[in-house]
Design a protein around this nucleic acid. Sequence first.
RNA 1: UGGGGUGUCGCCAAGCGGUAAGGCACAAGACUUUGACUCUUGCAUUCGUAGGUUCAAAUCCUGCCACCCCAGCCA
Length: 560
Amino acid sequence: MEKSKPIEVTNFIEAEINKDILEGKVKGFVQTRQPPEPSGYMHIGHVRNIVLNYGTAKKYGGVCNLRYDDTNPEKESQEFVDAIQEDVKWLGYNWGNIYYATDYFEQNYQIAVKLIKEGKAYVDDLSAEEVSAYRGTLTTPGKNSPYRDRSVEENLDLFERMKNGEFKQGERCLRAKIDMAHPNINMRDPVIYRIQYLHHQRIGDKWKIYPSYDFSHPLDDCIEGVTHSLCGPEFEDHRPLYNWVVENSGLTNHSRQIEYANLYIKGVILGKRFIKKLVNEGKVSGFDDPRLYTIRGLRRRGILPQSLIDFVYAAGISKAVSVIDPAMLDYFVRNTLNDCSKRVMVVTDPIKLVINNLADDEEIEISLADYPQKEETSKRKYYFGKNLYIERSDFEITPPPKYRRLFVGNEVRLNGAFIVKCTGYDLDDSGNVATVYADYDPETKSGSNCTKKVKGTIHWINQNHAKQVEVRLFENLTLPKEDNAAGGKEQTAADDEFNPNSLTILNNCYAEDDVEFNYTDRYQFLRTGYFCLDKDSTADKLVFNRTVSLKDSYKPNTIN
RNA sequence: UGGGGUGUCGCCAAGCGGUAAGGCACAAGACUUUGACUCUUGCAUUCGUAGGUUCAAAUCCUGCCACCCCAGCCA
């Protein structure tokens, strides 16, 4: 086995790993693991865990295995087991092997027996409430359980009978004998095995006793050969216990736990229970609702894996609580999409534009690049005609300062076609602009030698070639304050008022009728944003999700 | 009032005793058949705070302050 070489440091975790390599604590390669509990759908916060675990292992030439922390059947199900694998694959990461904490139950059990024999664990008859009461408080020490000093023989017998299912759930548990007066509550004789009769999605009813996380996790890490066990900040004060288990396990591989901060995004709901609440209450259509920041929600929204990975790397990692500005995610989403999106014209809020100096049946063929951002691109034909649709926001009766688009007397380019000069407009019964009139200049066809310059370019659709589509816009879904008052971190992630208008459906949108759209492509609707086809689309009607809007530097309100 | 963490630009984040990287955001300008993209420029005399050590401190020491996590037979 080749000795790993230290690698250039890019974050504090790699700095720690380098140190371990230099000090010879890590021989061979670095091994990590992704240890999800299959009790929910993964969200953007998990992307960092995935990138970190798989990325770090890869960087050091090691492996990262997927291990389900499936030691609590009460919360877990096969649905989540499957979803996790799908989501990891979608992100483009590959695990070395798939393991389950339940795979190690026999080994865990043997080590528990060993601890009992060494007098380091005992069976406690106290009820859960009593255990809690005996534990003391944050500021006062706990006191020993009256069962703490049972003989090894009695403990062995009782533990065996727990395993055989002779006791009721909650009647007894196995505890590590550490120190009931320890200032760190996790060290006050933690429960390492409890009786559990629920049917397990994977191992059925085989086991009546289940190891707790604090016992199984360090053991499983060591058994698998994990060198660095990366986890969330909430386990920081479990580290002494993690090390206690490792050192008393008798296992030769000693894994090291390193904690890092969770990733939160301002205004985004990430807590499992909050996401479930939104789904259960029907506030969203499911775990893949595009308003959710679950991995599949993001996917349905049209976000590509690369954006997420770039975002996570750019956000960096530390141990400080961080709440990232969503604008940063948007940037990386646009950045990826900009390179690969097909440019199409779609009018999302139409008003009519009539070209005065064109006959009703007259059409002029023009050509537009599908991927103008690329050197080589396919092109397609559009037909410029008399009756067009343009975006309502591209015309103003009284233009605000620095407005470059249409108003009476102003000239603007119709994308890919001609420069037109606005001559007038009509209002409808309710006083809104219905139709705008303009003259086109035949000498100004795009791509010709036309030297005339104009400040604004707008998109359009020929009414004779238009097909109606639906466009869905999403905003961050936030919970009302009273609902997220529970956890500080949830509050940090979603501390705004509930936003009932998080979904806007635009029914009256127009696209060119013979543009072919498909599910795998991404589209930039000129000057409005990036979109993708939603699964709700039918043969009769295409439904688009807005992945992210285009950045718009026009801010009339800031003009003095 | 116990223990464990964290505090560097609006938001992330490097830095680890030698005189404040980078990204997002923002601002100005160039370019432009997308006010997008791209490009150029600007953006912390200061590192929670008060002292101390030193020729020299964000980096070392001390005291404060603020925020986060922990009292499941959850993970």
